[in-house]
């Protein structure tokens, strides 16, 4: 008898459900299902954008302003609102930037800021406010259309950029960097 079958019949003899059953139970990705099912998100509102002179200064095509969209999940907006309340600073914003680096070429840089730069686009959740997100014009070209989420996990919670239409494949093994479509 092949070892696998022997194991299966041994398990069954001890009252365990079949191995087949175990496999479906443990290998399904619960996190992914949660995100798809329960996380609500909205199209963000563009509060401010750079002037065409500022865009020229930054060396970016003016067309980037036409595609300046981001999605923001409710839990990300709520978390930003909490930060603003705690800091008593309605101008506090999540700054998202793209840098070159890592083994797949690009990585995100996420930080809190209260200062808007001339070439920044400023976004917010349509109803949960204040929930400012600022993205410089160069970075926006590489993250437009993405969803900004706040993921709560046992080993640490953090803001994440997910479903980036410009990103290709699953990125590098350590999750730090990603590859862009061109």
């Amino acid at each position: 008898m092949p070892p696998f079958n022997a194991l299966r019949s041994a398990l069954r003899a001890h009252g365990y459900p079949s191995i087949q059953h175990h496999r479906t139970r443990f290998l399904s990705p619960p996190v992914r299902i949660l995100r798809a099912t329960y996380v609500t998100k909205s199209q963000s509102v563009l509060l401010a954008k750079p002037s065409s002179e500022d865009l020229e200064e930054a060396g970016v095509e003016p067309t980037v302003a036409e595609q300046a969209t981001l999605e923001i999940t409710d839990r990300a907006a709520e978390h930003l609102r909490n930060i603003a309340t705690e800091d008593s600073d309605p101008d506090v914003a999540l700054r998202i930037a793209v840098e070159s680096g890592g083994c797949h070429g690009y990585q995100y840089k996420i930080e809190l800021t209260s200062r808007r730069q001339p070439d920044d686009f400023q976004f917010t959740h349509p109803s949960l406010r204040p929930s400012n997100i600022v993205v410089d014009a160069v970075s926006l070209d590489l993250i437009k259309g993405s969803t900004i989420d706040f993921a709560t996990e046992l080993i640490g919670s953090s803001f994440r950029i997910v479903d980036n239409p410009q990103a290709k494949g699953s990125g590098c093994g350590c999750g730090v960097s990603w590859e862009a479509k061109f």
């Binding site: 840098e99 070159s100 070429g105 410089d136 160069v138 970075s139 590489l142 862009a180 061109f182």
Partner: peptide, 15 residues
């Protein structure tokens, strides 16, 4: 395959 100048320009960003 991108020509090398185009490839490099993609990674310049704000540097």
């Amino acid at each position: 395959t991108p020509p090398l100048p185009a490839l490099l320009k993609r990674y310049v960003l704000r540097s």
